[in-house]
């Protein structure tokens, strides 16, 4: 099947775009189209109007931002995967992008689009939450920022109001002694994860955990932050036992549902396993050299 007819708008300035979105609150925004077009081809979405933002200038740039990164909303997954700057400054983002779909999807799909689509098992929302990313959002009346942790509200549901557009993402500077881990359970390469975990751990020189961030995807309506596990790790030595205790706290903090891919009980059990693997990876990377970015 092919998409149903719609009114197509391809603005070339931000002002024009925001005015269109304000005038057409029901319009869907077309970025990479790798989630929207499948829904339209299948007839599951039949928007009356599309606002194609691919012609907007400046939204595909990646720049250093203090010690962190600022990424335009139209940065493609393939750029996240291959950019030397991103691989150096934020390898977690590069690795997460490399796990998305297939090469064709990664050439078109965008960072802003993936976050705005908010699939509960998608890699980029998960990593954005674990890294403490901030989303930049514009509307005709002005701009605002929201943390990734507050941006995701429910299944395919975000903090975005009609008329708003994600324009960029900021990743904070990563402290010396920080490592990340990314573990996901997939049946085939490129599938959406059944369960995915992303951990970011910062250690002091003596192997004590100064800060821990752990997010899990696929076990709730959006990526969930594992506050109890983080609390169990922070301030203590990163022994196997402490990692296991933190992972053991995960099943009590997730809210999976059963679907055709896995039962709720299986997802819950695998959430603990993926959490442990991500934490162990993060610990190893954090220890592999002080000053080495995640």
């Amino acid at each position: 099947m092919y998409p149903s007819p719609f009114a197509y708008h391809a603005p070339v300035t931000m002002g024009e775009t925001l005015a269109l979105l304000a005038r057409l609150p029901e319009a869907k925004i077309l970025a990479g189209g790798q989630s929207l077009l499948p829904l339209m081809n299948l007839g599951l979405a039949q928007p009356g109007a599309l606002v194609d933002v691919n012609g907007l200038p400046g939204l595909e740039t990646v720049t250093e931002d203090g010690g962190g990164l600022r990424l335009g909303a139209l940065v493609r997954h393939r750029t996240l995967e291959t950019s030397p700057l991103i691989r150096r400054r934020c390898p977690a983002l590069a690795e997460a992008a490399s796990l998305i779909g297939n090469i064709r999807v990664r050439h078109r799909g965008t960072l802003g689009g993936s976050l705005a689509h908010a699939d509960p098992a998608a890699e980029l929302p998960l990593v954005a939450v674990a890294l403490g990313a901030t989303l930049e959002i514009s509307r005709l009346a002005g701009a605002r920022e929201v943390s990734a942790a507050e941006f995701f509200r429910g299944y395919l549901l975000t903090d975005l109001a009609p008329g708003e557009l994600v324009t960029g993402v900021r990743i904070p500077a990563i402290a010396p002694g920080t490592g990340y881990g990314l573990a996901e359970l997939v049946r085939r390469a490129g599938d959406f994860a059944i369960v995915a975990a992303c951990a970011v751990i910062t250690t002091d020189g003596a192997g004590v955990c100064r800060q821990a961030s752990l997010a899990i995807g696929g076990v709730g309506p959006h990526p969930l932050v594992m506050r109890r596990a983080e609390g169990l790790l922070t301030g203590g030595p990163l022994t196997d036992r402490r990692l296991a205790e933190a992972a053991d706290a995960v099943p009590g903090e997730v809210a999976p549902e059963s679907d055709v891919h896995a039962t709720a009980a299986y997802r819950r059990a695998m959430a603990r396993v993926m959490a442990y693997r991500a934490l162990a990876q993060a610990r190893a990377r954090a220890a592999s050299g002080p000053g080495r970015p995640a």
């Binding site: 197509y8 077309l30 499948p38 090469i103 064709r104 050439h107 078109r108």
Partner: peptide, 16 residues
């Protein structure tokens, strides 16, 4: 291939 990069022709509008 779109400008040399593999893409899904089913997920690109012709006008794009």
């Amino acid at each position: 291939l779109l400008d040399g990069a593999p893409i899904n022709a089913c997920l690109l509008l012709a006008v794009q």
